[in-house]
Design a protein around this nucleic acid. Sequence first.
DNA 1: CGAAAGGCTCTTTTT
DNA 2: GAGCCTTTCG
Length: 721
Amino acid sequence: MTDFLASLNPAQRQAVEQTDGPLLILAGPGSGKTRVIAHRVAHLISTCRVSPYNILAVTFTNKAARVMKERLSHLAGSSADDMTIGTFHAICARLLRREGRTIGIDPGFVIYDEDDKLSLLKRAIEAVGLDSKQYSARAIASAISAAKSSLLPPQDYLERGQSYFDEVVGRVYGGYQQLLLESNALDFDDLLLRTVQLFRQCPEVLAKYQKRYRHVMVDEFQDTNLTQYELVKMLAAGHRNICVVGDPDQSIYSWRSADLRNILNFEKDYPDAKVVFLEQNYRSTKKILEAAAAVISANRQRKPLNLWTDNDAGEPISVVETYSQQEEAQFIVSEVARLAASGKAALGDCAVMYRTNAQSRALEEVFVQYGMNYRLVAGTRFYERREVKDIIAYLRLILNSADSVSLMRVINVPPRGIGQRSLGNLSAWAGQEGTSLYQALELVAVLEGPKPPLLNLRASKALGVFYSLMAGLVARGRELNLVELFDLVIAKSGYQEYISSGQDGEERWENVLELRTVAQQYSDLEPLDGLTAFLERVALVSDVDSYDESIEAVTLITLHQAKGLEFAVVFITGLEEGLLPHYRSFDDPAQMEEERRLCYVGVTRAKERLYLIRAFRRSLMGGVSACEPSRFLESIPQHLVSRGQPEAGEAGRLPSRDDDSLSVVDIPELKAGDRVRHSQFGEGVVVGYQPVRDDAEVVVDFRWTGVKKLLFSFARLEKVE
DNA sequence: CGAAAGGCTCTTTTT
DNA sequence: GAGCCTTTCG
């Protein structure tokens, strides 16, 4: 019982044992935060005899929730299964399905993602008589999102509006909500906002959950918005056992309306709150931690922690300057190869971090070129792929015929002769008759009843075909399990032929099959339940969630996604003015501070080795531009830095290729014409050979896969006689 | 109506 | 450089 307390330091222990009343835990990076939360829950369950059923723990990502569950089952066994643990969005979605009816939410609602939101918004913009090209749907979307994140419904927004843009947004906002309602859909922000509204309007529902959740815990509290905080406050109002964990220095989501004031206000809202500081870092070397502290100390808006560590001083931090982004990538590949070859780090210990997803391409190309395994955490996001969204739209439509975004998406995919004009006629007529799009479709398809006047015979026929397709799917959907339904959708819609014959057909079809594998996990459930659960899952998962640590590969990841992770070796790339910090933050000091926090998050992911890389030239949006070094580099104290190669060590000497101690592989002379074998690429002929630092670059023409440039130390080439 | 081509804009981060 | 939208042609 006390044995899991023994492994904690005094501050951690205090955080675990402080179970009654409000508690704010300020946890620096690598301070064992997850551990503390897990121990705290275990302590509540086993020592304080709190039933897991009475505990609510909110995280920001599904992955964090999963990690927490794993830790808990380790500490507290299966008793933790009854605990409510999940993301804000997942918890709210579940609650609204159960209780939403009282405020007019149909339990079969769909969740609209950013794409769906934009297409609905474009309709809303046009519906209020504005040109959707003149007003950027994106700008309006983010204004609406900000409003929802501050608990502002359309009426209030209009009343508070100041500028003309506010007025436009206010009007569109109202129309957009109307369309959502008609589509029986909620967007991400609605999940939170509507839950608060539910609690406000139905005190008895709130009371039920207040009674249930005797202990409420929130992780990554610095990333909550006002609506989320309100939600938590309401839930915790009953027992006032509320524990929030956060680090203002790691707040990097203000663009998603995360509000640092929540942390600052916590002590105001709960004057009796205890505050615990977790300041011992168990992750990084002294040098890395010192560099991190130096980077973040330039910020004004903060509640500083005094981080310290017992770890070794460690290696100096490598500041590397390369000519181009290609050379940047090459440096990383050769460095990883060197570390791997000398046994200092495995591929899986290494991560490459960048500000923007676009940067991953150049990195990938070089990794492919040299045949080094890598794992891209969010490429073209799987659930955003066209073919995946198409199939999901069909499935959504089966469950919820009101879903107009999905209907518009698939009505002519694959092409079945329903064009712009017919669709316009149909939807205008639907508006006139006051029916949903799907109902209008039904009226066209059946023999009797009113018909839209402008629709010609051919178009009506095509619409009828689509309607009977959907009607058939809906009927079968009640009997079939999810995979059977999935297959039926593909078969009846002709999607396979359509997608396979198009561009990248094979790859796209494989994505469809991958989605089918996900569907398989829900095939044991009752027909419509399986469908509902599947759709909820695909709406609320993210790419970090699928991050698989078991494969031996270098991780390529954005700085944002890297939060919460740690790696022995970290390369932060693109430390250039305009990229990190990003130019969009130049004119706003608050945003600039957030960029700095982002850099801080990256630096503090590193356990042993940190490389800060910048390129002189980088191609951005097609064109090439010269780059100034990032201001963040100036914050790194010189005595921590090695500008040569990382192995230069304490003495600061620069290694040379003749230095035997550094040469970790014997490099035999290969010359053009030599035949070699590679484990993956098979046999090939050497066409080029060039020594590079303490390694060599070999260009080989492989029989099957063509010409590849390889790094000798890494490629494990065998000479074939 | 649909496929293909050309032009346009926008590229920060994501539950 | 890509995706989205519009235009054009069959």
